[in-house]
Nucleic acid binder design. Structure first.
Lengths: 218, 218
DNA sequence: GAGGGGCTCCCCCGTGCGGCGGAGGCGGAT
DNA sequence: ATCCGCCTCCGCCGCACGGGGGAGCCCCTC
């Protein structure tokens, strides 16, 4: 019984390359292709393949959304393998959380590719069990629920909050930003209002809980 | 060229079962076994296999330590696949962080097992790239570097810090703990001293950075 | 029995902080 | 031309906070 595969990637060259590699294997068959996320969803729904090789970065609907939709709407969804160029692509975590069975890099060699496809095709409790999903979920917990107030902060307020969360006093922040202490106080007041907190400590907590500090790492 | 494998598991039955499965494949060869972590290290060092199937839970030295030692001391270390019974085993994260190339469940079927072995044997940039390692590292960051001061906090100080990090004022903390405000001030002062911070905000930051807030979740 | 650490509480003092209200300049949107 | 949002700053006020002391209590260890 051959493994039926659908390729979803916005670049034709990538699809062609993948198809060429997979065609060389007698037990693998590429039954369809898609160039956008939306197309991927409909194609997969129609063809019901065993495995989908899904690019994360695609126009209209990205690979994560497409993955979600496929898994949510199909009775017997295929295994979805996310394809990416950069191994630290943040989207990869999102994709795993969305339910992807695995991911692989575009620079992977042909041999590894076909083995990966075979592997995910007939194993659901193997290399990517829910443990990895839990890992990804844990990792991006903050990102999943980016509190509404984050977007409402102005540039200056954003800076101020970051410095607050670095443990600086208003005076220090003023010095660091090259403005007067009174200005900082204004910004702080605005931050407190927008975050719905009453003092700088609570604001800092909110910042951490919101994953606001994830970028600058520690 | 055959793939040379070493099995490390404290249960003989598991080793036998794995050996039986792998022996059926012409391209796979089990060249050695080990029943403890220490034994695994020496056996692997001597035989220089391509792949090691390593149980996480073993007497003396566990699979994580063994993995670390193997990767740290060998010039051309083998790929190490961690074997576990429970997919949410916390040790799995540790193992990935230690440098394991992947993990698989004991209830995995034979087919998946051999494919997994083949996969890790000849691919280093595929299913378990550094991204997963980064994920695991990120996940257990707090566990890896539990700042020295955490242990030095007394019971009360611990409680106080948690409440501080929940955004409470000294008065509120006093009420919550059923003591006087002056007492709370004392504890706060102690916390600031032990954490090396100058105000409650910095203390809260330290608490978050230390993963002090991981338990109560958000 | 003497010491030490943890928990409890007290005083005083200075100040960083946050609330309140106001003001001027500057840019984009209508 | 007008408005509105953002950034900049001012004064005044009250309080929570943190520093520096000290004190009594309990329990455990030495």
């Amino acid at each position: 019984m051959t493994i039926r595969i659908v390729l979803a990637d916005d670049e034709r060259m990538v699809r062609t390359a993948l198809r060429a590699i997979l065609a060389a294997e007698p037990d693998l068959e590429v039954v369809g292709e898609a160039a956008t996320g939306a197309e991927a969803v409909s194609v997969v729904r129609e063809l019901e393949p065993d495995v989908v090789l899904m690019d994360v970065r695609m126009p209209e609907i990205d690979g994560i959304r497409a993955t979600e939709q496929i898994l949510a709407t199909m009775a017997a969804p295929p295994r979805i393998v996310v394809v990416t160029t950069f191994e630290n692509d943040a989207y990869v975590y999102e994709a795993l959380r969305a339910g992807a069975s695995g991911f692989l890099l575009k620079r992977a060699d042909a041999d590894a590719l076909v083995q990966a496809v075979r592997l995910v095709a007939n194993s659901d409790s193997l290399l990517f069990p829910s443990a990895v999903r839990a890992l990804a979920t844990e990792y991006g917990r903050a990102k999943t629920a980016p509190p509404p107030w984050v977007a409402k902060l102005t540039g200056r307020e954003n800076e101020v909050l970051r410095l607050m969360a670095a443990g600086l006093t208003n005076a220090e922040i003023a010095g660091r930003m090259g403005v007067g202490p009174a200005t900082v106080k204004s910004h702080v007041a605005a931050v407190l209002a927008k975050t719905g907190t009453r003092d700088r400590t609570q604001a800092v907590i909110a910042a951490y809980e919101a994953g606001f500090m994830k970028d600058a790492a520690s």
